[in-house]
Each structure stands twice: as C-alpha cells, then as structure tokens.
Design a protein around this nucleic acid. Structure first.
Lengths: 261, 261
DNA sequence: CAGTGGTCTAGACCACACT
DNA sequence: GTGTGGTCTAGACCACTGC
C-alpha cells in the first residue's frame, strides 16, 4: 500500500490528489498528520491519555506498526510522551521533568545553587497595537493588538534574566500582570491550560551585548558588564509563530549550555 | 528472544552475564553496540560503504528489521548516513553538506555574505605538557603532551572568530602549523583522514565576555566590545573527550543559532 | 535489470503498570 | 490477569540508484 491508497479516516478525509507520483508521502506520515490535527484541534489536550496504538490502528485502518512509527516521530519531537504499561500522553510543559526544556542557562556549579524554580517578578504586562517589527515577526498586522510582558527571573535572589515577551493579543485575551504574578506554574504551563496554546518548537539567536540603562537597573549590573542577548521565536503546532522573546542573561555564575550532535 | 539469548557474532562475543534480568538490553541495542565497535576499530572508515542490512542481519544472526532499527539510531546520531538505492555510509565531516555541522555562528543576513568557507589563519601550533586544567578536561596526566593550536577565522575578510584549541599529543602526533595552514579542508576532515579521529558529539558552554588585549588585536575590536565565549568539548566514539576549544566570536554581523525542540 | 534502503503488514512474545 | 507500550520476526512490495 502506498500513498495512492485513499486513507479512510474517521473524518473521511480524501487524500490530496497530487500525492500519487511526484511527491510521495508514506502512510505513517499521513497518520502523523492526522494525529497532529487532533492535537491541534484540542481533541486530546496536554496531559491527556490518547487512544492506544491498536485503537488508532483500527480508527485509521492501518496496522499497529504503522501507527507506531507515526507516534515514534511525534514522541521524538516531544509532542507526545510514551509510558510503557500506561499508554501515550500528550506532552505538557507542566511536568517537573520538562519544566525548563527551553531554558538553557545552567549554573556553572550544579552542586550548590540548585536549578530550582527561579523567583519571578513581573515588571509589567501591556496591551498595545503591534509595533511594525513585532507584527512582522508574529505574522500580524500593525492594527492587531499584542501583549508585551516584561519580567525578571532571579536565582538564589540574584536577578539573572530580564525578559521582554511579545504575544498575539487575540489568542491571549485576558492576560494581565496579576494573573502572571499569581500563577506559580511555569509560564508555558499556564499558556496551555488557560489559552490552549502549546509551544512545540523554538529557535534562539544569541549575541553578546552591553546592557541598556534599564537593564542595568533590573539586573543590578553596571553598563560595562557583557551579557547574553537571547532572542527566541517560539512556535506552536504547524510552525505557527506564537511568541517573540528577548532575554538578557547574566553569565557570571551561569552559562548557556548547548548539545551538538 | 530477549537479552538472555547469547548473541553469536562474527567475533563470537559472549554476552555480559549481568544482562539477564536487572538490566535489559534489547537486541537492536546490542547490534548497535557491535556496529559501533566496528566503526571505532576502523573496520569501516569515514566515507566507506558498510555492508547492506541483509548482510549485517546474516552476520549477526538477527532479522533485517532489527539491524534496521540499530542503523536507524546510528543514522539519527549522524554516525552513519543512509542513501536510498545506494547503501549506508560512514558519516564524515568532509562532505559539503555537513561541513559546518558544529559551527553555529550564522550571518544575520544570509542573502549577502555567504556562509562560504571562512578564511583561516593559523597563529601557532605548539607542543607542550598539559597544563593542569587541560589535563583534567581531556582526561590526561600533566606529564602528557598536548597540542595547542590558535587560529583566526575570517568571513569576507573580517576577522570574526579566535580559537584556542587543545588536542591530546599522543593521538595527534606530527601535527604542525604548516600542515594546518596548507590543508584546505575543514579541520575535522583532516583529523579523520590523517589521525583516524572522528568527532561525534560536542557540548558548548556560552557566556558573554570582554576581550583580552590579545583578542582585541586578533579580532580588530576594542576592549569594550562584548563577545561570545564558546567553550566546546568534543567527543569521539564512546564519549571519549578528544578536543577542548575556546572560541571567541564577534556577533556584530552574525549570531549563534540554536534550535530548541 | 539487480541491489539497496524504505514502507507496511500480521503475528508472536516480553516488560511494565494497575487492579 | 488484563491492557499498554516495546521488541523481534518473516515476508511482501515500493522507490531509488546504477549497470
């Protein structure tokens, strides 16, 4: 069986006509797409148990092995989490295990100051029309509203990270400084439960900079202290840009750790 | 069949006795280990075609699917490269495609200054006894010799990266500044062909720093220019540390790019 | 055309978690 | 024990490469 087989799904989706010869899409990729659709549509929410491999195989009229390969890929992309004996779950940023998946700043000496939860201080949360640069980056119009959140993260009471975060106003309706301050969970965990937005992938561009006066103040450093400027684009399902974030990191007792393979 | 089945290999390796119950190693992991051994032993060298999946299945007395899964993992770790219709090859740093796999500094504007081959200038290449820190990091004794290579990389004639590289003397016997200068290939490609060392994995720790006088001179920047300090540990097969490298990067027209997933 | 990797299936059995 | 994911097998067929 190949791509020319009409995939009779629960939703009875006709296959794209152009799949026959020039572009060829393996069955498991098509299954992967369907599972992704269900994830995006919220049929299964972060933390949920999804149907077993055999159930999905029956639903999509393919063998269990094919479903397995689709789920394998989604698990490697951290969209799903497999647990032997229990089932397969929708990944979430709320788990202790993956709490800081996107935060690569690690203590130089892991023995002492723990990677424990940082203290968070929200500076402000403003709703405004998207500045041109923000609009371009988030694929919005300049007439659209956005939220700008600024905050400081401290480790062991040392202010270490200043962040300037931009979010689309339409999907984060109702976001306020109060809500951000009072919620004790990681920010991305709140995004999942309160706004149905799950950050799936991100890209960081890093440079060395000197601090602005404002940053000097927030991080308690002088204007000659070199700092890391980490610009992060975060994406949700289907590579939709959902967040733009500028982080300014102190690196005197911590460093940005990256694994190359 | 499980881990208790003695794996009768070409080399007739007895299985570790402790594999029976407490630790359980799937067959394909054992196959992966055997293939890795062959890679490390140099039975197949970088660029070589390795035996087909069916041949390996016959050699190791397992099914093709099991070999396939082992090779799948090695391919995902970039140790092997699969080419449909041709076969599976030992990965190499000499290919155009993966030339700069470990260099994450990208131009801000990819349209103009190409990611083309950087101009390289070797400052010096010295053989000396390992300083304590270097010895510790490379798992050597302070009585062991090491090579220290210093060089500058320029893009479009702009000096951009200063590197201070430390290598174990015993495995890089005969390394000289001349050889490094005259070889036009990437450094890691030369390591493969001339010293049989393939860098497989690396880890980078990044901070922001101000330049030393020496670096000011090499990179033509003033002492107030913030720079990226990228400390890289490179490993060969079986996670043996093989290189310690301090890179100082200018980030005024380029940035360090990192994908998070 | 033959040979290689890539996909898909069906069925068996193992390891793990829960009840 | 039952149900889940995890491993392994054997065989079929497809897609790509090069002779």
């Amino acid at each position: 069986m190949n791509a020319s087989k009409p995939l009779e799904t629960a939703a009875n989706q006709p296959p794209p006509a152009a799949l026959v010869s020039p572009s060829f899409s393996p069955l498991y990729q098509q299954i992967k797409g369907l599972v992704l659709q269900s994830l995006q549509a919220g049929e299964w929410k972060p933390g949920d148990l999804i149907p077993s491999e055999f159930e999905l195989a029956a639903r999509y009229k393919v063998s269990q092995g094919t479903v397995r390969k689709a789920i394998d890929e989604l698990a490697k992309e951290h969209l799903l989490v497999r647990r032997q004996g229990k089932g397969t779950f929708v990944a979430t940023h709320a788990e202790q295990q993956v709490q800081f998946r996107f935060l690569k700043l690690k203590p130089d000496n892991p023995g002492l100051g723990q990677q424990g939860p940082a203290q968070r201080h929200i500076i402000d949360c403003t709703r405004l029309r998207a500045p041109p640069e923000v609009a371009r980056i988030l694929s919005l119009r300049t007439s659209d509203f956005v939220f700008q959140v600024r905050r400081v993260l401290s480790f062991d009471a040392v202010p270490t990270i200043f962040e300037d975060i931009w979010l689309p106003g339409s999907t984060f309706k109702g976001l306020t400084a109060d809500r951000l301050s009072q919620d004790t969970r990681p920010m991305y965990a709140m995004f999942e439960s309160d706004f149905g937005i799950r950050m799936v992938r991100a890209q960081e561009r890093i440079r060395a900079v000197l601090p602005s006066d404002e940053v000097c103040d927030f991080l308690k450093v002088n204007e000659k202290t070199p700092l890391l400027r980490v610009e992060r684009m975060s994406f949700t399902y289907h590579d939709s840009p959902m967040e733009w974030r500028i982080g300014i990191y102190r690196t005197d007792t911590r460093h940005y750790l990256n694994e190359l393979s």
